[in-house]
């Protein structure tokens, strides 16, 4: 038995058994989405509350006034938020399957901003309530302490600035990732030392051990995500077997498993791909799988040249070694899906293609509608295969191509996807309809808003945003 076989994340019996049962297409696990989200929130907020309760329990000193204690409370909460940032980016597959990695990373980003604000408020409130606290930042009072605390404030600012203005600063994605992790670990370490050295609420040794243990767990997650998991990937090599051009300045890269059975995934999910390097490496990028989930030993990703690292994808040579981390994401057929509506734009077609190919290969007769927006016929990735699928009728597919610049003689939909266009094609809504939206941000916002206005609950709308990285 390979070590991976004992990994509960990697096993997916649901996917394997699905082909045997054409009656149920979807995966019932996704139905627990709101419940699981609630549990995750309770854990997050509960732990933050618990740290404050922990500070207050058995504390011998009287309070130092509301403002001072409020400032202290914000410091504690800010620290816990920072520690949780490590868990949010640990790329837990089960969490990504339920909530979506894009939502988790958006949440991570927002909570990062808020924790920065909390730490600044911690400093600002304490100094304005009790000016003598300014001594903590005064080099004349205590050089190592002032140096450490200024380092934290500068490191927090650096993380914020490099995240918001990474492009403007000319910082590569790889160096941003490395500096982000290193600065975060440094901040957490100094933060912990600060809490222990101030020691006002953490004087008891048992409390100190809880704080040290909690911080170690957060840093441990970082080590696990960036080192242990990548090292485990090494035993599962893939090889690029083909790189073929597609319309729309896109390339399909075919990967073959080398001496292992491949990757069990659900159609519509994505992977982090490492090309031509051995993990651990910061140079890995998320791509949707475009091939059928019926084949686990061969994976295809279709990548559009977008001017960044993707612009050299066509130069990748067959035989190049590759590693695949994943699968991730919840852009999959879920629950009691009886009818699927896809709205895709441009390269957003890739996960949809995987779902349609899987339905075809498994012979699942799920009625599907695909509204597919493309700039022009020249950019129409997969259009030929989609037309064939529609003609064959397995799965029953209604294809609505939308050309921004239509070819001569085109009588179908043109321009961009609009609410009126959606109204012309969308089927009557019922609890069995699932909506899948993947494409450029404005299109996704428009479609999601329109679906919400039609009264479709968020739990039946799946979307995948590629700007997660």
């Amino acid at each position: 038995v390979k070590p991976e076989d004992s990994d509960p994340d990697r096993r997916s019996p649901r996917t394997r058994s699905r082909s045997a049962d054409a009656g149920t297409v979807g995966n019932s696990a996704a139905r627990s989405f709101p419940g699981t989200l609630l549990v995750s929130k309770v854990i997050y907020l509960g732990l933050a509350g618990a740290t404050l309760a922990l500070a207050a329990v058995g504390h011998p000193h009287p309070g130092r006034g509301f403002l001072v204690e409020f400032g202290v409370g914000l410091g504690f909460v800010g620290f816990v938020m920072l520690a949780f940032q490590f868990a949010l980016t640990a790329k837990f597959r089960w969490l990504s399957r339920l909530v979506g990695l894009d939502v988790l990373l958006h949440f991570h980003r927002q909570m990062g901003f808020f924790s920065y604000g909390f730490i600044l408020l911690h400093v600002g409130i304490l100094i304005s309530a009790q000016p003598e606290y300014a001594a903590y930042l005064d080099f004349r009072v205590d050089v190592p302490r002032a140096l450490a605390l200024w380092t934290v404030l500068l490191a927090l600012t650096a993380i914020l600035v490099t995240t918001i203005w990474r492009g403007d600063l000319g910082l590569s994605y790889e160096w941003w990732r490395i500096s982000h992790a290193a600065l975060a670990a440094l901040i957490l370490f100094i933060g912990l030392v600060h809490i222990l050295r101030v020691g006002w609420y953490i004087a008891d040794p048992w409390k100190q051990w809880i704080w040290v243990g909690g911080t170690a767990a957060a840093v441990g997650l970082l080590v696990y995500t960036r080192l242990v998991k990548p090292l485990r990937l090494r035993s599962r090599r893939w090889r690029v077997s083909k790189v073929r051009p597609e319309p729309g300045r896109s390339w399909t890269v075919t990967l073959e498993a080398v001496d292992h059975r491949g990757l069990t995934f659900e159609a519509g999910q994505f992977i982090w791909l490492i090309l031509g390097r051995t993990p651990p490496t910061a140079i890995q990028h998320p791509f949707s799988i475009s091939s059928s989930a019926a084949r686990e030993d061969v994976l295809e990703v279709t990548i559009k040249e977008l001017g960044d690292h993707t612009s050299r994808i066509g130069e990748v040579k067959p035989g190049t070694v590759a590693f695949v981390e994943g699968p991730y994401g919840n852009f999959v057929l879920d629950g009691d899906v009886k009818e699927a509506v896809f709205v895709a734009g441009g390269v957003g077609i890739t996960p949809v293609m995987s779902i349609l190919r899987t339905l075809r290969d498994r012979g699942l007769p799920l009625p599907t509608l695909l509204i597919y927006g493309m700039p022009s016929l020249e950019d129409a990735t997969f259009l030929g295969e989609l037309e064939e699928l529609e003609e064959e009728g397995s799965p029953p597919l209604t294809l609505v191509p939308v050309f921004e610049a239509p070819p001569q003689g085109w009588t179908g939909e043109t321009g961009r996807v609009t609410p009126e266009m959606l109204e012309r094609h969308l089927p009557a809504d019922h609890p069995g309809v699932r909506y899948y939206v993947c494409g450029p941000e404005p299109m996704m916002d428009l479609v999601e808003t329109h679906l919400r206005e039609r009264g479709v609950p968020l739990t039946r709308i799946h979307s995948e945003r590629f700007n997660i990285a």
Binding site: K41, Y44, L45, A48, G49, L52, A55, A56, H59, P62, G63, R64, G65, F66, L67, V68, E69, F70, V72, G73, L74, F76, V77, M81, G100, D102, V103, L104, H106, F107, Q110, M111, F114, F118, M444, D445, E448, T449, R452, L458, I461, S463, R465
Partner: peptide
């Protein structure tokens, strides 16, 4: 929509945590 959902979730969480910090300050002072 889902990024707005994530934003709402983070604003809600942050507000909740501010309230917690305020409650903490209140209770250690009584």
């Amino acid at each position: 929509m889902k990024h707005i959902f994530a934003l709402r979730m983070s604003i809600g969480s942050a507000l909740f945590l501010v309230v917690l910090a305020a409650l903490f300050a209140y209770f250690v002072n009584i």
